[in-house]
Simulated assay, not measured.
Amino acid sequence: MFPIRLTWQALATFASPRVSFAHTDPEQLHQVLAEQAAAANREAAEHATSAAAWNVDELHVQPGLLEVRRDILADVHYLEGLLIGARRRGLDRELIERLAAAVDTGHELTVLLADTALTTITAAHTAGH
């Protein structure tokens, strides 16, 4: 990669979390995917430690669930925009099918998270909180 492209990618990251560059080389894309997974894995230990310290009862879990659901809803709406654009432009059928599946899965996840958040209330009442 050229240094100027790295500079532009760094600037794009600060400007907007949605701005990125398309990759035409599968190896480059695999590298980006691996870097994303590695970064998430590094943060996982911190999240687990924080969760163990802060989530002392059912109601303490709820704010985290709501935060995650909010973020996923925003991402699902973004994915819906990508899907609408792909359909309007008649892009590859497999791409459209995979985007549609991602959107559906995202919606299912937001429903599951909402149900889980509601469970924190019923579980707290059962536990006598």
Rank of each mutant, 00 (worst) to 15 (best):
2 F>M: 10
2 F>H: 12
3 P>D: 08
3 P>M: 09
3 P>N: 05
4 I>P: 00
5 R>T: 09
6 L>W: 08
6 L>Y: 10
7 T>E: 12
8 W>R: 04
8 W>F: 05
9 Q>M: 10
9 Q>T: 05
10 A>P: 03
14 F>L: 12
15 A>Q: 08
15 A>R: 06
17 P>M: 01
18 R>N: 13
20 S>Y: 02
21 F>D: 06
21 F>P: 00
21 F>Q: 07
21 F>T: 06
24 T>H: 10
26 P>I: 08
27 E>W: 01
27 E>M: 08
28 Q>N: 13
29 L>K: 13
29 L>Q: 14
30 H>E: 15
30 H>F: 06
32 V>C: 08
32 V>D: 15
34 A>E: 14
35 E>L: 09
36 Q>I: 14
38 A>V: 09
38 A>I: 05
38 A>P: 01
40 A>L: 15
41 N>W: 14
43 E>L: 13
46 E>W: 07
46 E>Y: 05
49 T>G: 09
49 T>K: 15
50 S>C: 10
53 A>W: 01
54 W>V: 12
56 V>L: 07
57 D>R: 03
58 E>R: 04
60 H>A: 15
62 Q>F: 02
63 P>Y: 03
63 P>H: 04
66 L>Q: 11
66 L>A: 08
68 V>T: 13
69 R>W: 05
70 R>I: 00
70 R>N: 11
72 I>W: 03
72 I>Q: 09
76 V>T: 13
77 H>M: 11
78 Y>M: 03
79 L>I: 06
79 L>Q: 10
80 E>H: 11
81 G>F: 03
82 L>P: 00
82 L>I: 03
82 L>S: 09
83 L>C: 05
83 L>R: 03
83 L>G: 00
86 A>H: 04
86 A>I: 00
87 R>F: 01
87 R>H: 10
88 R>Y: 06
90 G>Q: 05
92 D>C: 05
93 R>G: 01
93 R>M: 07
93 R>I: 06
96 I>M: 10
97 E>W: 01
97 E>A: 15
99 L>N: 02
100 A>P: 00
103 V>C: 07
104 D>P: 00
104 D>K: 08
105 T>V: 09
106 G>C: 02
106 G>W: 02
107 H>L: 06
110 T>F: 02
110 T>G: 04
111 V>Q: 15
112 L>T: 13
113 L>G: 06
115 D>K: 04
117 A>H: 00
117 A>G: 07
121 I>R: 09
122 T>K: 07
122 T>Y: 13
125 H>S: 11
126 T>E: 12
127 A>H: 11
129 H>F: 13
129 H>P: 01
